[in-house]
Simulated assay, not measured.
Amino acid sequence: MKKALFLGAVLAVTPLAAQAADTSTPLRFVLIPKVVHPWFDKLNTGARAAADMITKTTGQKIEIEYRAPQTADVSSQNDIIERAIATHPDGLILDLLDEKGNRATMDEAIEQKIPMTVFDSLPPEGMNITAVGADFCEQGTIAAERLATLIGKKGEVAIMMGVPTAPNHTLRAECEKKVFAKYPDIKVVATGIDNDSIETGQKQASAIMQAHPNLVGWVACDASGPVGIGQAIRESGKAGKVQEVGLDNLNDMLQLIRDGVAESTASSRPEMQGYWAVVSAWQSAMGQKTPKYIDTGIDVITKKNL
C-alpha cells in the first residue's frame, strides 16, 4: 500500500505529457554490477521488486536485464556495457569498477542518448547522473571507529581494500585511514586487496596475520573482504584475539557475527539500492529530472539486533 501511495505521489508531480506516454511498450533497463557476487544478488532482488511495483501501479511493464561480469575486471565490464548500448535499452544501471576506466563507454551511452543511473558508486566527475547508495565515507568511518573502540584505541590494524580502482571502495579506505590517524597508538601495518573475492580475501588475510602476529584488528572496504577475513580469523584460532568490524549484510557475514568471529558490520542496504536505482532509471526514461544523489542509509548490525 505504501509503495502504491508513493508512486501516486511521484505521478502527481510528473508532467501530463509524461503521464500520458504509451504504456503498452515495455521499458527495458540493463543492470550491470561490478562482478558476480551475493551482494549484487540482493541488489537484483530489490531492483526486480521496484520493477514489479511500477508495473502494477502504472501498467507500464518494466524489464530488468541483469548482466554481471564473471570477474571484477574493467575491460570485461566495459565490454558488457558496450554490448548493452548496442541493444538500445531504455536505461543503463551501473556500478563502476573504475571511474576513469568506465568513462569512455559511459560517454558512448550519452552519445546514444541512453539514460544512466549509477549505484553503490559515484559518477565520473562532470557527469550529471543520479547516484544511488550509502555515504561510503560514513560507512567506512563507522566501521573504523567501532574497531578503534574495540581495541582500546591502540594496536596494529589492517585494511582489506576491495577493488582499489572502485570509487566506493577507495573512499571507504581513505576515511578508515583518517579515523586511525586520529589515534597515535593505532598503527595501520598492512593493506590487502581482495578484488571482491571472498577466497582472495581469506588468503590475503591469512598471509597478513602470519606476517604481523601482533595484529589486533581488521576493517574492510567491500562485502567480500570481511567474509574472507572472518574465515581467516576462524581458521587461525584467533577469534576474540583479532577483532573484526565488517561491511554489508551477506549471509556469511551475519553468521560470523552470530559465531562471535566479527563484532558487527556496517551495511549499505543492497536491496534498497537496487529498488531506488530502478525508480530513478524509470523516471529518467520518462524524461523527468532525478536527484543528484539518493542516500539509502546504513544499518549497523550486531549480535544483539540480528
Rank of each mutant, 00 (worst) to 15 (best):
I151M: 03
T302Y: 12
F136M: 12
S75R: 13
K241W: 11
V35Q: 04
Q283S: 12
A190W: 10
I64L: 02
R234C: 11
M160E: 07
Q243C: 10
R103K: 15
K34Q: 09
L94C: 02
K303D: 11
S268K: 15
D22N: 11
M286N: 06
V118H: 00
G246D: 06
K61E: 09
V157M: 02
A18Y: 10
H212C: 07
V35T: 09
V242T: 04
G237A: 11
Q210V: 10
G246R: 03
M1H: 15
W218N: 06
T14W: 06
L122D: 14
T141A: 10
P184V: 06
S224E: 12
K56M: 08
L94R: 00
G152N: 09
P270S: 05
K61I: 09
R48E: 01
D79Y: 11
T265H: 06
I208N: 01
K3V: 07
N214L: 15
F40I: 02
A223E: 05
P270K: 07
P38R: 10
E199S: 13
A266M: 11
G225K: 02
I294H: 06
K304Q: 15
G217A: 07
T87S: 04
V163Q: 03
L31S: 08
F40L: 02
A134W: 13
W282Y: 10
W218K: 04
F40A: 01
E199W: 13
K203N: 13
Y275P: 01
L92I: 02
L254R: 07
I114K: 00
A20Y: 07
V13W: 13
Q60H: 11
N195H: 15
Q210E: 14
